[in-house]
Computed example of a mutant assay.
Amino acid sequence: MKVLHIVLKPRFSGAEILVKDLAVTHSSQGIAVGIAAFNPPEDDFMPIIENLSISGVKCFLPVSPLKKTSRLLALWNWLAQFRPDIIVAHSAIPALYTRIALFNRQMPKVISVLHAVDDYRDWRLRLPEYILRWKSARVVAVSDESARYYIRRFPKAHIKIIPNGIHINRFILAAQNRAKHREYFGLAGHTQIVLQVGRITPVKQQHLSLAAIIPIMRENPNVELWFIGPIEDKSYYNALLDKVRSFEIAERVRFWGGQSNLELFLAVSDLLLMPSVREASSIAFLEALASGIPVIASDIPAFAFAEKYPGVWLVSPENTPEFGDRIQLALAEKMRHVRDLSSYSFQRTAEQYLSLFKEVLDNEKGCVD
Results as ranks from 00 to 15, higher is better:
1 M>A: 12
2 K>R: 15
3 V>L: 08
5 H>P: 05
6 I>K: 01
9 K>W: 06
11 R>S: 13
18 L>W: 03
18 L>M: 11
22 L>K: 02
23 A>R: 02
25 T>S: 15
26 H>R: 04
28 S>R: 11
36 A>D: 05
52 L>C: 09
61 L>A: 06
66 L>W: 09
70 S>M: 10
82 F>D: 03
83 R>M: 12
88 V>M: 09
89 A>P: 07
90 H>F: 05
92 A>Y: 07
92 A>V: 06
93 I>F: 05
101 A>H: 05
102 L>N: 09
105 R>E: 12
113 V>A: 04
113 V>M: 06
119 D>M: 03
121 R>T: 14
124 R>N: 13
129 E>L: 08
132 L>C: 12
137 A>S: 14
139 V>T: 13
139 V>L: 09
141 A>D: 06
142 V>I: 14
145 E>F: 02
146 S>P: 13
149 Y>I: 01
149 Y>E: 10
150 Y>M: 01
152 R>T: 12
156 K>Y: 14
158 H>Y: 11
162 I>N: 04
165 G>P: 05
168 I>A: 03
169 N>S: 12
176 Q>G: 11
177 N>G: 12
178 R>T: 06
180 K>N: 15
181 H>I: 14
182 R>H: 11
183 E>W: 02
188 A>G: 15
188 A>F: 14
189 G>I: 04
191 T>P: 06
196 Q>W: 02
198 G>T: 03
199 R>W: 05
204 K>L: 09
207 H>P: 06
210 L>H: 04
213 I>N: 00
213 I>G: 01
224 E>Q: 15
226 W>S: 06
228 I>P: 07
228 I>V: 15
228 I>A: 13
229 G>W: 04
229 G>T: 03
231 I>V: 15
233 D>Q: 09
233 D>H: 08
234 K>T: 13
241 L>Y: 10
245 R>F: 14
247 F>K: 10
249 I>M: 10
253 V>R: 02
253 V>W: 06
254 R>S: 15
258 G>V: 03
259 Q>E: 14
260 S>K: 07
261 N>E: 15
262 L>G: 01
264 L>D: 07
265 F>I: 02
267 A>W: 04
273 L>G: 00
274 M>S: 13
274 M>F: 09
280 A>E: 04
289 L>D: 00
291 S>I: 00
292 G>L: 00
298 S>L: 08
299 D>K: 12
300 I>Q: 09
303 F>W: 04
306 A>M: 01
312 V>E: 00
316 S>P: 07
316 S>W: 07
319 N>L: 11
319 N>G: 12
326 R>W: 04
327 I>A: 01
327 I>H: 01
328 Q>W: 04
329 L>E: 09
330 A>I: 00
336 R>E: 00
339 R>W: 00
340 D>S: 07
343 S>L: 13
345 S>E: 09
355 S>T: 08
359 E>D: 14
364 E>M: 10
365 K>A: 15
366 G>Q: 11
369 D>A: 11
